[in-house]
Write a protein that binds this DNA or RNA. Structure first.
Length: 212
DNA sequence: CAATAGATCATCT
DNA sequence: GATGATCTATTGC
């Protein structure tokens, strides 16, 4: 397991670097790509975003928003820069960030984080993780590790206890693209983005097509 | 290493 | 009543 220094708390106890709402008010795929390398902060816990997926609007049958406004999906049609947290498989919660201008649905699923701060608390919340790299290496794992639940649904991530921030050297990496994971519809759409070679990415790229 | 089963419930049909 | 943007343990090669 890679050893990493935790980031100093004083850097996440201020509002420094919080991404403005305009960052999210763009096409979901652009926001998904640009979210890589940014820092997700909740209280004293923080992690670097290393894997995301974009979910679009009415044409994207894999997206919750494709069936229109329901009690669950209404936040997707609201202003950007808010959290959309939903419960899945009777057991897990997934964090999305609403993208696109108000009235246009779209969001970014945060799929994996590289833990940076609050590692002890993450370990307590994820006792089954065997290494630090596994603490938040999946959409259900990261909400557990970060203490994010449905109570954050609709929360404004440009202020408050749950925020996303830029970091000085957050673009020194290569980005890989692939289809999204675990969906039936629109399987070929290249809407998954991840930091190449990062050990916290949930699933590494499949080996190329079989020879012959 | 790959495939699979089981856990468990909000949401929508 | 079926399904699902998942995770873990277990089984089998």
């Amino acid at each position: 397991m890679t050893k990493r220094a935790e980031i100093p708390f004083r850097n996440i106890e201020t509002a420094a670097g919080i991404l403005p709402r305009s960052f999210y008010s763009r096409p979901a795929a652009e926001v998904a790509r640009d979210l890589l390398g940014k820092i997700l902060v909740h209280g004293r816990a923080a992690g670097r975003i290393v894997e995301t997926e974009a979910y679009l609007g009415l044409d994207d049958r894999a997206a919750h928003a494709s069936r229109g406004i329901t009690p669950r999906t209404k936040v997707l049609f609201g202003p950007p820069g808010h959290a959309y947290v939903y419960f899945i498989y009777g057991m897990y919660e997934c964090l999305n960030l609403v993208a696109e201008p108000k009235g246009t649905p779209g969001c970014v699923l945060i799929r994996a984080l590289e833990p940076l701060a609050g590692l002890a608390a993450m370990r307590r919340r994820r006792p089954r993780a065997r290494t630090n790299d596994e603490l938040a290496s999946g959409p259900g794992k990261l909400t557990l590790a970060m203490g994010i639940t449905r109570r954050h649904n609709g929360a404004d991530v440009t202020s408050g206890s749950l925020t996303v921030r830029s970091w000085p050297d957050d673009s020194r990496f290569e980005i890989d693209v692939s289809p999204r994971i675990g969906i039936r519809y629109c399987r070929d759409w290249p809407l998954r983005f991840f930091i190449a070679g990062n050990p916290c990415v949930s699933r590494h790229p499949v080996a190329g097509p079989p020879a012959s």
